[in-house]
Write a protein that binds this DNA or RNA. Sequence first.
DNA 1: CGCAGAAAAGTTTTT
DNA 2: CTTTTCTGCG
Length: 888
Amino acid sequence: MDETRDPNAAPAGRPKGGIAARALAARGGPVAPNAADYLSGLNPEQRAAVETTEGPVLVLAGAGTGKTRVLTTRIAHILATRRAFPSQILAVTFTNKAAREMKTRIGHLVGGEVEGMPWLGTFHSIGVKILRRHAELVGLKSNFTILDTDDQIRLIKQLIQAENLDDKRWPARTFANLMDGWKNKGLTPDKIPEGDARAFANGKGRELYRAYQDRLVSLNAADFGDLLMHPIAIFQNHPDVLADYHKRFRYILVDEYQDTNVAQYLWLRLLAQHSAVRAEAGQDKVNVCCVGDDDQSIYGWRGAEVDNILRFERDFPGATVIRLERNYRSTEHILGAAAGLIANNEDRLGKTLFTDLRDPEHEKVTVNAGWDSEEEARAIGEEIEQLQRKGVKLNDMAILVRASFQMREFEDRFVTLGLNYRVIGGPRFYERQEIRDALAYFRCVCQPADDLAFERIVNTPKRGLGDAAIRLLHDYARAKGLPLIAAAADIVQGDELKPRPRAALADVVRNFERWSGLLSTMRHTDLGEMILDESGYTEMWQADRSAEAPGRLENLKELIRSMDDYESLPGFLEHIALVMDAEQNAETDAVSIMTLHSAKGLEFETVFLPGWEEGLFPHQRSLDEGGRSGLEEERRLAYVGITRGKRRVKIWFVSNRRIHGMWQSTIPSRFLDELPEEHVEVMEASASYGGYGAGGMGGYGASRWDGNAFSTSSYGTPGWRRAQASGGVGGYAGGRGRAIEYGESGVSGSDARSRAAATADKYIARDGAGGRSSGGFEEAPANGPDRSGFAGRLTDPFSANRSRGANQPPRKGGGLYSSARAGGPREIEGTLVAKSVADEPSRFSVGDRVFHIKFGGGTVALVEGNKLTVDFDRAGQKRVLEGFVEPA
DNA sequence: CGCAGAAAAGTTTTT
DNA sequence: CTTTTCTGCG
């Protein structure tokens, strides 16, 4: 489809290309005279990327090389040189955040008067815009509803049940994911591979997909995937429509090109292909500029194709390729570590980042070992506090985790420390139950055919409309081919329903009729409030005594408040369906906790990277499902993580991690071995020993993390050995923070509340208050005693350490090692369970001194069979199994 | 019909 | 360990 283009045209054949070429030639020299303000301060490559406006351009922008700056300046340049009006530029990003940022920055560059840029947005928001204009071409009305995942799954579940399939055996969620994959690949029901179609529900996959799409049309709805799929179909089947867009878009820009999936690629290629319309307008080449970094492609799992960026030059012959390799963000050590790591990947276009930020004072990337994830959280917490004391802002620090379950431990810890934190990318504002309920009301008012929304709220708050009533309503609606709400209006006229539910339903119908009538006359914010009040929804939460109810009411208020930014209720609904992220308030100083994925594009002074262990990072599932390319994606994720740091990057790994409530032993990540020695410092001991900051380790070799003998394993680090030496049985003379640990004993009651608040309101920064009802000993560093016990008892610590499935970190005595033998005692879910010793007389009697691996030394207060009640010196009174203590 | 308690299942990353 | 779903009772 690019045949009309002149393959022999020089890459920079257009007049502006000449300037770019000169700029390139003048590399390092003074900027050209009369250069516009916005161009000054760009380095030669950046400038070329900005000024090469004509023809296809691929900008390979490494981490921290000013990618966003190039994109925004390029748009500003196009506008300033009057090459195009704002409405003639198509600029696509992946996230709303990126789109917003670009808008503001362009505003700053151009002087703020560019209100326009109607075509700057995410793939999805632009997709909606296109689809609204031509909805009828795919059987929708232009006021179609956008379904989110939740609606989607409920709908699929109905379809599965309608097919008389077991929705347990074939979960709707699985099918939603499957279908999502198809849509990411741009596959319509007739195009999906036979194997995929068979894989679900005994070969009914294709049928289900088709039924789902039909149902969406009858609901006048589109899901996220459709926002791309429908426009593609429209472009393919209606050349006149496509030609219209070709005429419109003179310049196309794409951010994060490495993350585009097949559907997005098809969409883009249709818009960016050369055409008669373009030739007529005097364009001999398409002015498309894609910016990306193949080393930061981390969304392969959701269909992104790195190939798209790798084959750009094939797709757009004669493309100019510009590499941005000068990094303005990180120190030489951070870049060096990242470079050494990413060099292990084979599939790359290859870039070498360099920086002028060199200084002997710069800290190397540190690698820290910890015993278990609790210690990791504790030590990182302390390090954060210490940096804070040195004057580093919490806002400048971030903890980037591989998987979201890792966040909890940090949250717990920070709550007890009273350290401000914010979780980014948690449950999104618009995905909260109360918000979705409220929106369902609004949707019903605006779109009476929105059955999914109606179903959601017909009995919320409780109106006595149970299964029986709903089923009757459904059957009636299906029989008559009516939307549910219309069916309800009919049904309340008859006597099929019992008086009580009939009255309730009639009330609902009457309410919706009234609200719909007010839609055109009343201010939408007032109407919104009115709906929530009159429906009893507000009241429902006011009556709710649970901990999260006040927060929910607060969220509802915020929802009404945010409606003010939009002109109408439908306009508001359109907006919220797409904008998934709620704004964070950056006013409070708080540490950010987020996944590595959501950290892309961000930067922090100090970055903590916990959990570098095999199985977690690289994640087992990526390895299992993705093989080598899966591993490479994980490595890119690690690369992204490291390159977020400006001055300090601190990597952690631990030997024991609790996954699904089960303690598992872990071995250090292979990525640690790939970090070049000269940029990395291995910390002597964990921060909780107060040992960080001191020198590195001597025998720094390839097998330093994962040798299979004790001395060469990770436990062979000097810090580790010192910890062992200093931490004799019961003799742990801990570092700082102990007073805090034990001071918390007995604090209770506030725990449940603060936890509930933490879950309900994750995305809002708050200061942590309250302790843990479980008592301070839970917080006590388990390190010293554990380690020494470990080292002293097990003949083959490493193999024991590798064992899986224990419910507690390996410990001596009744720990993992002995439970591996038949009949040994085991600890299950924190409750001590004896297997075979129940009837035997106890080895202990009241008054005996005993030692417990976690609680330390204590005195036996009571003996009941094999269960002891022990007054521990530090942990207080606890009931334990005698298998877990031994005479001291 | 609604609620509360108990059992069961599920757990990477998300526009 | 948490969240969701089912069951049984009021």
